[in-house]
């Protein structure tokens, strides 16, 4: 009975979704010239970044990204608060094989370098702070699952995280101090397509990369230690 009802509901929902989507045929130009067109036209001259998506996220909607970082931070804090039960536990799993251990030790630095590359070049290539941070955390996850007693100090992680978060806010306040608005770009724009371009965008994305990497690493460590 429950399944039939669910299937019926899903059928109705799917039919109407499809009916709405028929008004937006796939691949047709229905780009809003006032918003998306302006972003595409003015990004390089106004922000100095060549990646339009990055410039929207960090420059035009930088305040929104500060809120996004805060949401991630709140989720990590909430998780730690829910999982912490007063006693420290070890990750109780058997040791990985020699091949996995040697391979992950070899790959770990390369993964960290890839993550750093992704967040430093966020204004030039597809990528950015969130993606780079996630790659760095995946490198730490590899070490966690191959070495049973691989230890990361939570104090260092939370220091990195809070420093990076403060750097973001301080860069925003500098905009208020030397410019007119919060997070206004106060640095020279540079030559587009060079590493030193885009004003504040690379600095903010480096801070976000460190913050997300530290946050996700701490989160993975907490979750792995909780599983019995």
């Amino acid at each position: 009975m429950r399944k039939i009802l669910a299937v019926f509901f899903i059928g109705v929902f799917g039919y109407y979704m499809l009916a709405i989507l028929m008004d937006f045929p796939f691949g047709i130009d229905h780009l809003n010239p006032g918003l998306a067109g302006a972003y595409l036209k003015d990004t390089v001259s106004k922000t100095g970044a060549v990646n339009v998506v990055t410039s929207i996220i960090v420059n035009y909607r930088g305040f929104d990204t500060l809120g996004e970082v805060t949401v991630l931070f709140l989720a990590a804090t909430g998780m730690s608060a829910l999982l912490y039960d007063g006693k420290t536990m070890n990750r109780s799993r058997q040791n990985a094989s020699v091949i996995v251990k040697a391979g992950s030790r070899l790959l770990f630095p390369l993964i960290i370098i890839l993550g750093a590359y992704v967040f430093i070049h966020g204004h030039l290539t597809p990528g950015g702070g969130f993606q780079g941070g996630a790659i760095i955390a995946s490198g730490f996850l590899l070490m966690f699952i191959s070495y049973r007693n691989y230890h990361v100090s939570h104090r260092i992680l939370s220091n990195v995280e809070s420093t990076a978060g403060s750097v973001f806010v301080v860069l925003g306040l500098l905009g208020l101090l030397y410019g007119a608005t919060f997070l206004e770009n106060i640095m020279p724009l540079g030559i587009p397509n060079k590493l030193f371009s885009g004003g504040l965008i690379p600095l903010i994305y480096i801070a976000v990369g460190f913050k997300v990497g530290a946050e996700l690493t701490a989160l993975l460590d907490t979750m792995l230690k909780t599983v019995k």
Partner: peptide, 24 residues
């Protein structure tokens, strides 16, 4: 259009946070 891509980048991060919190 770059706007949906920027919005989805935000949504992915929030989705990750939601999944992690729900699993906790």
């Amino acid at each position: 259009d770059p706007v949906p891509q920027a919005l989805v980048l935000t949504a992915i991060v929030i989705g990750l946070a939601i999944t992690a919190l729900a699993l906790t």
